[in-house]
C-alpha cells in the first residue's frame, strides 16, 4: 500500500517528527511504499542541516536524511512555509539574495501542490502534528 505522510511540527519541540519517522520505518519494514513525506508549518525545521543536537540525543534531521537515502524517499519541504522560517536551498538563497542555505541532504523544496498530489496518489494520508 502507498502511504503519504504530513508532518506539521518541527523537531524536538514536539514528538510529531519522531512518531512519523517510527511510522515510516515500520511501514517500509512491512513492505509498504512511502509515496512522499511532506513537511509543513514548523515541520519545515526538520530540514535544516545546521541542527546540532548534543551527541547523546538523536539527530532527527540526520535520521530523515539517512532513511531517505536508504529507501529513496521523497522528502518535500513546503516552499512558502520554509522561506518564512529561513529554510533555504541553494536556489532559493540565490533568488532571495541570502548569504547562506541550509537544506539538509535528501530533502527538496517545492510547492503545496505536492501535498495535494500526495493525498491523491497515496492510498492513505497520515498527519502528524500538534
Amino acid at each position: 500500500m502507498k502511504f503519504g505522510i504530513l508532518i506539521n511540527e518541527g523537531p524536538y519541540q514536539h514528538q510529531a517528527s519522531d512518531s512519523a519517522y517510527q511510522f515510516v520505518k515500520a511501514a517500509l519494514e512491512k513492505g509498504h511504499e512511502i509515496f512522499r513525506v511532506f513537511f509543513y508549518h514548523d515541520g519545515v525545521q526538520n530540514a535544516t542541516r545546521l541542527a546540532s543536537p548534543p551527541q547523546d540525543d538523536r539527530n532527527i534531521i540526520a535520521l530523515w536524511s539517512a532513511l531517505a537515502k536508504e529507501h529513496n524517499l521523497d522528502l518535500v519541504v513546503c516552499v512558502a512555509a520554509a522561506l518564512r522560517r529561513g529554510i533555504l536551498d541553494e536556489n532559493e538563497a540565490k533568488r532571495g539574495g541570502k548569504d547562506a542555505h541550509n537544506l539538509a541532504d535528501g530533502f527538496r523544496i517545492s510547492g503545496l501542490g505536492q501535498l495535494i498530489e500526495a493525498g491523491i496518489q497515496s492510498d492513505r494520508l497520515v498527519v502528524f502534528g500538534d
Binding site: 500500500m1 517510527q22 511510522f23 520505518k25 515500520a26 509498504h32 492513505r124 497520515v126 498527519v127 502534528g129
Partner: peptide
C-alpha cells in the same frame, strides 16, 4: 499495538483522522 500495528491499523481502515 507497536508501530507495525499502527501501520496495520492505517492500512485496514479506508481513512485516517488525526485529532491533534
Amino acid at each position: 499495538v507497536d508501530y507495525g500495528g499502527f501501520v496495520d491499523l492505517v492500512a485496514e481502515h479506508t481513512s485516517v483522522q488525526s485529532w491533534l
